[in-house]
Design a protein around this nucleic acid. Structure first.
Length: 298
RNA sequence: GCCUCGGUAGUUCAGUUGGUAGAGCAAGGGACUGAAAAUCCCUGUGUCGGUGGUUCGAGUCCGCCCCGAGGCA
C-alpha cells in the first residue's frame, strides 16, 4: 500500500497548488482536509481552489455540505475514510491537503472519538447555564462526574467542558475512559512550508486584500440571501462575520480589511503551533522542488 | 498672539489626596480526541514629550520649551 502524502501547514503557504503538482506527478487524487472548504457557497473567502486551479486533478471533501448545516471531524472521517481507502486500493498514494490539523489527525491515527454525537439542545442549555451561573459552576459539574477530564481542561474552555459533560450525559461514560492515544492508522509522509513570520504575514495581508477584490462581499450577500445566518457554523470561518458587519454598516471598509487580516494572522499562528507537534512532519523551504522532496521522503 | 485640553508599553488608553507604573488589543509561546478558520491558557520596563525647580521622594505640584487637537482674536 502506498504511503499517504500530507501537505499541511499554515494558511496562505501554497498548499493547494503544490498538491495539484503532486497529483499530476503521481496520477492520483487530492483529499482536502479543511473544515471550511466542505461548505458550498463559501468560495472566495475560504480560498477554495477553482476548477482551473485543480487542473483536472480529482479533489474530494470540497463542497459537500450546505452552508446552513453543521459539521464535525467525525463526519469528516466517516466520509473521507472510504475515499482514501479506495485510492489506496488502486495502489496510488492519496494526497491529503489542508490546514485543519484536527481533520488530518483523524485520518492518520486511530482515535477513540466515541460514538456520541452532538446534542444541540444539551449544548444550548449548558451554554446558557454558563452565562447565568458562570464557567466555574459548569466546571464543578464536570468535576463531579469526570475529574480526570476536568483536570486536563481549563475552567474557561467552555466548549470542551460542555463536550465532556455531553459525553457523560448521553452515555453515562466518562470522556477520560474513551481515550486510546494516537496509534497510527496508515503510513504517511508529511510536509509543511516553513515561511518566516514576516513573509507569511505579508502574504496573508495581500491575500485578504485580493479576496475582497475578487468579490468576497458579493459572495457573502449571496449567502445571506440564501438564508445563511451569522451564528451558523459556516459563518464562523474567518472574515465572513466581518464582511457582514461591514454590510450592515457597523464597521468601515478599512476596519473590516484590517480585522480580517489580523484574524487570519492569528489563525496561521495557531496552525503553526499545532503542526509543530505533528509527528513525522518535515518543514521545507517554500522554494523546494516538491516532487523531488516527496520522492526523497518516500 | 492668548486660552483650553492632550502628549504614559507596538497601539488605544487607566493611573486615587505626590511614594520610580497597569488594562484591552497587537506581538510571542502553548493547549487541542464529534464546533477546530472554532475554543481556551500563559507572557506587560516603558528616557511616563523635553528641561529646570519644589520635595526625603514627582507620571502625579510649579516654571519654561517642543509636538498634537480645539477655541478666541
Amino acid at each position: 500500500m502506498k504511503k499517504t502524502i500530507v501537505i499541511c501547514g499554515a494558511t496562505a503557504t501554497g498548499k493547494t497548488e503544490h498538491a495539484v503538482v503532486l497529483g499530476k506527478y503521481f496520477d492520483t487524487a487530492v483529499i482536502s482536509a479543511d473544515s471550511q472548504l466542505i461548505y458550498k457557497g463559501l468560495n472566495i473567502g475560504t480560498a477554495k481552489p477553482t476548477l482551473a486551479e485543480m487542473e483536472n486533478i480529482q479533489h474530494y471533501m470540497i463542497d459537500i455540505i450546505e452552508p446552513n448545516l453543521s459539521f464535525s471531524v467525525a463526519e469528516y472521517t466517516t466520509m473521507a475514510e472510504p475515499i482514501i481507502a479506495n485510492i489506496e486500493a488502486q495502489e496510488k498514494p492519496p494526497i491529503l491537503c489542508g490546514g485543519t490539523g484536527f481533520y488530518i489527525q483523524s485520518l492518520l491515527f486511530k482515535r477513540s472519538l466515541g460514538t456520541v454525537g452532538r446534542d444541540n439542545q444539551f449544548r444550548k442549555y449548558y451554554q446558557e447555564l454558563a452565562k447565568l451561573k458562570g464557567n466555574t459552576y459548569l466546571f464543578e459539574e464536570l468535576k463531579k462526574v469526570d475529574i480526570q477530564t476536568a483536570e486536563k481542561l481549563h475552567v474557561n474552555d467552555v466548549n470542551r467542558v460542555i463536550r465532556a459533560l455531553e459525553i457523560y450525559a448521553l452515555t453515562g461514560k466518562k470522556k477520560s475512559e474513551q481515550v486510546e492515544g494516537f496509534s497510527p492508522k496508515r503510513e504517511y509522509i508529511a510536509i509543511a512550508f516553513d515561511y518566516d513570520r514576516d513573509t507569511l504575514y505579508t502574504k496573508i495581508n495581500q491575500r485578504v486584500r485580493n479576496m475582497l477584490k475578487l468579490g468576497w462581499i458579493d459572495e457573502v450577500q449571496q449567502l445571506l440571501k440564501q438564508g445563511v445566518m451569522p451564528d451558523m457554523q459556516s459563518m464562523q470561518a474567518i472574515g465572513y462575520k466581518e464582511v457582514i458587519s461591514y454590510l450592515s454598516n457597523c464597521i468601515g471598509y478599512n476596519e473590516m480589511l484590517e480585522l480580517i487580516q489580523r484574524k487570519t494572522r492569528n489563525y496561521a499562528k495557531r496552525q503553526i503551533t499545532f503542526f509543530k507537534k505533528f509527528p513525522n512532519l518535515t518543514w521545507i523551504s517554500p522554494n523546494t522542488n516538491i516532487v523531488k522532496k516527496v520522492k526523497e521522503l518516500l
